[in-house]
């Protein structure tokens, strides 16, 4: 069931999966709210149980997909289980696209100054989808290849890089506000930032080179980062880890009241 199929079997599996999905969706929509929540709870619990048992059960050396690895009797099913997720997410991408189409169609139909953005959205989306599909076909024409390169490498990546570079300016404005000396905390923050920044560059190291070793700015900077900053960050990480475990447990065991299992 979890091995790739070819030829007629492939078509059979695709058709079977589509029929099974439709049947499942119809059954789920027909079920009363309470029963549907029980189905959700059961699937969530079994899914969580699978990963929990696979993680906690003792392991031994075994062959997984032709390679030697540590695992238990559930380990060979981890990859097939993970392969189900892209199938689910592909359905979700469809939902996302429908949402975008609904929103922007309404805006174009209403037509005001902002509607031009929605027109640009439609043009870009259709153009990029067509160019990418055409470019992935065997022996694409030079025009299609160039168009795809212009849209994806020339436009999209450059726009991504532009947004990323804007962060530099935002960091400057945020740092200016944070480091204004208005309170004891802000002053401490400013002093620490100056030490860490000067400790990072050669001029700072040069400034303190005549002082005893333990007062060299790079030593102080290192002390701040490893003895003050790192423990605080680790303490936050411990709290977050436990918090994440608690939320996971509540969802897994159906203890969470609210949107998912219980009203």
């Amino acid at each position: 069931m979890f091995t790739p199929q070819t030829g007629g079997a492939w078509y059979g599996y695709i058709a079977g999966a589509i029929v099974a999905s439709i049947v499942l969706i119809v059954i789920l929509t027909q079920l009363p709210q309470r029963a549907r929540k029980w189905v959700l709870f059961t699937v969530t619990f079994l899914g969580g149980l699978f990963y929990a048992l696979e993680f906690f059960l003792p392991t031994h050396e075994m062959m997984i997909e032709g390679n030697k690895a540590e695992g238990n009797f559930l380990t060979p099913f981890v990859v097939p289980m993970a392969n189900i997720l892209p199938a689910l997410s592909s359905f979700a991408v469809g939902l996302g696209v429908i949402n975008l189409f609904q929103l922007h169609t309404k805006r174009v139909l209403k037509w005001n100054l902002d509607s031009i953005n929605s027109v640009v959205f439609f043009v870009a989306m259709i153009l990029m989808t067509v160019a990418h599909i055409m470019a992935k076909r065997p022996h694409p024409s030079e025009f299609v290849t160039s168009l795809q390169k212009i849209l994806f490498d020339g436009a999209l990546q450059s726009l991504d890089a532009t947004m990323f570079s804007i962060i530099a300016f935002y960091i400057t404005s945020a740092a200016y506000r944070a480091f204004r000396v208005r309170s004891l905390e802000a002053t401490l923050l400013l002093a620490t930032a100056i030490i860490v920044m000067l400790g990072q560059i050669t001029i700072g190291q040069l400034l303190t080179s005549s002082l005893p070793d333990y007062l060299h700015i790079e030593v102080v900077r290192n002390w701040i980062l490893t003895k003050v900053n790192a423990p605080a960050t680790r303490a936050i990480a411990v709290g977050l880890g436990i918090g994440s475990l608690a939320v996971g447990l509540r969802i897994w065991l159906g203890l969470e009241r609210g949107s998912y299992f219980e009203n």
Binding site: A174, A175, R177, A178, A235, I236, G239, I242
Partner: peptide
Amino acid sequence: IASCDYVIIGDEYY
């Protein structure tokens, strides 16, 4: 912390 008025940190999030 630099940009927002209030920030919840660490396990306050959970």
